[in-house]
Structures are given as C-alpha cells and as structure tokens.
Design a protein around this nucleic acid. Structure first.
Lengths: 212, 212
DNA sequence: TCCGTAAAAGGACAATTGTCCCAATTCTTT
DNA sequence: AAAGAATTGGGACAATTGTCCTTTTACGGA
C-alpha cells in the first residue's frame, strides 16, 4: 500500500556524493508537483515523506494507484517511454526528493548494471502488485478490500484521509463510511478467511478507532 | 487491448537462429499453459495466436488483465522477481511460442543491451496501459468502457467471447448483456465525447452485430 | 444424427453503490 | 476570536449491478 525502495535510495544517495547532476527539492504538504499530461524532463526519488499517485478524470473523480514513500521513483516510466506524465503526484506530508534529468536517468540505466537491475525489479514489482490489487478489488466485495487497506494502514502506521482511502479503493466516500459502519456493527468477517494475518481482536480495534 | 510487440519477436527469432536454448511449443485453443501459483522456470514469447492473462480467485470469479498477441512475453515478471506465477495464461486460439529458460532470459538481460531496453520498454508500457485502463474503468460508467472495448475489438479484428469481454471489464456477463442492450436501444452516447476516434455510425454498426 | 455442453440473451428480484443532501467537528487563516 | 474551508458521518432515494434461473441457439464428439 505504501511502497518503498530503500536499496534504490541508497544507490542514488551514494551516487550523488560522488557525482554532480543530482539536486534536492522540498515540497510542502498538499503540493502537486507532477501533473498528468504535462511535459516532464526529470526523474525524482523520494527521500522522505509520503505522496499519492493518481489519475484525475475530467468528471472530477480520481483514482489513486499507490501511495509512495522512501526510495520510490517518479517520472521513470515517462523517461523510459518518452511521453507525457500519466499521473499526478501530490505530497501528502512534506516531501523531500532527489532530482535528476531524464537523460542522466537513461544513462544510469545503460552504465550501471546494478541500477538497471534495481529499476527492472521496481517495474516488475509494480506490475505484480498492481495485478494482485486490482484483481482483489474487482473480485471481492468492498468489505474485504476495505479491511485489508485499514489493516495495512495500521501496520505501516501511516495516516490517510478517508477521502484518499476511498479513492484508493475506487469507491465513493459515502460507500466507504457505510461499509465501515456495517463492519463495526454487524458480524466481522472471519479474519482467517480474509488472510489478513491479523486477529479478529486487532481488527475490531482498528474499526473502533472510528467510534473513538 | 490486444497487446503485441513485434521488435521483441524479431530479436528472439534472430537470436534463436544463431544460438541454442530456444525451443518451440504449440498449444491448442483452450489450453491453460501457465497456472497461477505454480512454479515456473521458463519465459515464453508468443509467435502466433491469442491468449488471455487473468487471475482466478477461489470464489470462482476471474479478472482478465490483458489479451496477449504476437511478440508478447509471459513469465518475464516471474523471472525477474524469482517468484511463483501470478496469473493464468490460457490460449484462446491455437498458440505457438518460443521458450527459453529463466536463466537464459536473465543472461540476455545482462548481455544484450538492446534486449534489456526492449524489456524495460515493455514493462513500462504495461504499467502505463494498466494505469490508464484501470482508472478509466473505475471512473467512468460501464457504458463508456464497454464501447471502448467493443471499438478496439472491432479495430483489431479479433473475436472474443462475451464472457471474456465481461471478465476484462470486471463486470458480470449479465451486466454486459444489459448494457449492450441499453446502448443499442436508447441514445448512443456521443462518439466524440467518448474520444473513441470512431463515428456514431460505425459505433451503431458494431452494436448491431449483436442484433444480427 | 443425436446428445451434451457451451454461449448468448434476458426476466425478476435482491443487494450494492452512487447522488444529493445536511449537520457536526476540526482545521486554517485572517 | 471569528469566518471560512475541509473532514467526517450519515439519511433518503435513485441507479446500477449481481444472483438465480430459464430459454434459445450453436457446436463438437460419439
């Protein structure tokens, strides 16, 4: 849910100590620093903070693909495919990044096998996770996906707005609230059955945060 | 919708003429030649035919990620991440493939920059397309996605079962039929508004195939 | 040729989800 | 401190989608 990639961050940090061409940037919470459809010529690596990566359609609805954390890259796909941005990236907390030019990114890919392998790994992981997640969301009732997301949020100790969680699940805020309420009251589904790796007790605790 | 990758196929075919380690296989229509969750040690390139790539959950429902055609790879993600299969691959028509061992795939990645770049490109494209598609399906009413899919099917001159189309759209067969009927009868949405790059006339024609 | 199976189409009803509200609470910011 | 703007929670109703079931047609094998 909140993806990270520490090895990648290590690589870039080390590289930046020995070479030029790497810049530091800081964004404040709420700032959208990459806009879908716009031209982009840089690749950025998240050093700290949390961002959301999402598509916003003309009808005002948005769909969040991922929450990105430490070590994750943005702009890589666009650099490889030489195309315009496909997603928006907005800082949820304050965010610090390391920025390199697209051309440097591509030359790193060619000249540093270790870097190449890490990016290859990163892309493969993204595909794998995206597949698993979208299948899960399509094929199971919302309750299941919702419980999973809340569990993950809890595990990783991050705090996201309800609105963002709903957008991540591909449902409306209203549906989100409704489902949480239902789960809190009625029968909680079997934690085992859900394969969440969490006890029924812990689940209840998470849900009751909403009661306060 | 039906993805292909001719450059990649060219590369592998040329390689196979000069080296050993590449085998040919044929699968009959309907055959599932890669099973989710199973161990796999090969990577395959589609030479001819059409396959579907999907996840099947225990509740019997399935979700199709992509239809794969000429030049597409399967098993690559698994080779890169060294993990079990995440999807099922089933031949829709008769299918021919070129098979290489996982270790050969990885050594090609390391020793042939051109191959490396092609795979990098392929992964980036998959991510890009997956993002666009899943956002589209989440954020617009089914009619829109359905029309788009039918248009694509028509353009590419492929023929898929209604069941597969529904699984691709993440809806039930019943919903699929219902929506087609509605569109056929009532107002067809503006073709321009949909940005399908197809005229209203042509759309009607496609929908009326169902009437016959 | 006949049978069994799969694909296609749709009726009827139940369940889910979205839309449009409104109210309470918590922030920012001036 | 007060005003305005988000965030959260939920009622009421409409629209959409799923489930279950039946019918018709098409197709391949015995």
């Amino acid at each position: 849910m909140l993806r990270t990639n520490l090895p990648l961050l290590n690589f870039i940090e080390e590289y930046s100590q020995q070479h030029s061409g790497v810049e530091t940037r800081t964004y404040t919470a709420g700032q959208t620093f990459i806009q879908q459809g716009s031209e982009i010529t840089t690749v950025q690596f998240l050093v700290s903070g949390i961002t959301k990566c999402y598509i916003l359609e003309e009808n005002g609805k948005d769909y969040i693909f991922e929450f990105l954390g430490k070590g994750e890259v943005v702009g890589d796909i666009e650099a490889i495919r030489q195309e315009k941005c496909l997603c928006n990236i907005t800082a949820i907390t304050e965010v610090q990044t390391l920025v390199i030019h697209r051309s440097l990114f591509n030359s790193l890919l060619q000249n540093y096998p270790a870097f190449n392998a890490m990016i290859m790994q990163e892309l493969a992981t993204r595909i794998s996770q995206t597949c698993t997640r979208s299948a899960y969301q399509q094929l199971y009732p919302v309750e299941y996906a919702l419980l999973r997301v809340l569990t993950l949020e809890n595990e990783q100790q991050i705090f996201l707005s309800k609105k963002d969680l709903a957008a991540y699940l591909g449902i409306t805020l209203r549906s989100f609230n409704r489902t949480v309420k239902q789960l809190r009251q009625e029968k909680i589904l079997d934690a085992e059955e859900l394969q969440l790796g969490i006890s029924r007790q812990a689940l209840l605790k998470i849900l009751n945060q909403f009661d306060e």
